[in-house]
Amino acid sequence: MRLWSVHPSMLDRRALIAGWREALLAQRVLIGGTRGYTQHPQLVRFRACAEPLEAIGHYLMALQHEATARGYAFDRARVLRPDAATPGIRVTTGQLAFELAHLRAKVAVRDPSWLPRLPTTATAAPSFVPVPGPVEEWERGTLEP
């Protein structure tokens, strides 16, 4: 499961679609609708919110808005809290840099034409607020594609 902290506009087609599916799974986990992935480290930041369903709803809608802008049809009816307010989840600049490097490595293999669209510095997805710091403690990814 990869719940990207970088802005959805940076995600290539495969990352955007996978991110949507994985965020829907995260939503299901947060409502207790599955036994799998309940201890996934990337859910820590959503569970830490006062309203985890609101937080994942806001996150999902950011993905849905990006998908709509690209002409994809992500079904917003699947989002339990589509009108959620911005949760303001903190994310470190080190995490954003790690994710951009991770995305860059994946895109270099699967869609090199997307590489020029990637900025040198990552911006955060609308659900997140960047703060100075290293890669997040919950991060388990590697920079291998």
Rank of each mutant, 00 (worst) to 15 (best):
L3S: 10
V6M: 10
V6A: 10
V6I: 15
L11P: 09
D12E: 13
L16S: 05
L16K: 07
I17V: 15
I17L: 14
I17K: 15
I17C: 14
A18P: 04
G19V: 10
G19N: 11
E22A: 09
A23V: 10
L24D: 11
A26T: 01
A26M: 00
A26R: 02
Q27P: 12
V29F: 05
G33V: 12
T34H: 05
T34D: 10
T34Q: 03
R35H: 07
G36P: 00
T38Y: 04
T38S: 08
Q39P: 04
L43D: 05
L43E: 06
R45L: 10
C49K: 00
A50Q: 12
P52T: 01
P52R: 02
P52N: 02
L53N: 10
L53W: 02
E54M: 04
E54R: 07
A55K: 02
I56S: 01
G57H: 03
H58L: 02
H58R: 05
L60N: 06
M61Q: 07
A62L: 03
E66I: 02
E66K: 06
R70H: 01
G71P: 05
Y72D: 08
Y72C: 00
A77M: 12
V79H: 00
L80Y: 07
P82K: 14
P87F: 04
G88M: 06
G88D: 09
I89H: 06
I89M: 14
R90L: 06
R90C: 04
T92Y: 05
G94T: 04
G94L: 05
L96R: 09
A101E: 12
A101L: 09
L103T: 01
A105P: 00
A105R: 14
A105I: 06
R110F: 10
R110L: 11
D111M: 07
D111Q: 14
P112C: 09
S113Y: 02
W114I: 04
W114K: 00
L118H: 10
P119M: 08
T120F: 08
A124V: 14
A124R: 11
A124C: 12
A125N: 13
A125E: 13
S127Q: 14
V129N: 12
P130V: 11
V131N: 14
V131D: 14
V131R: 15
P132I: 09
V135P: 02
V135N: 00
V135T: 13
E137T: 13
W138Q: 13
E139F: 01
G141L: 14
L143D: 15
L143H: 15
L143M: 15
L143Y: 15
E144S: 15
E144A: 14
P145W: 00
P145G: 10
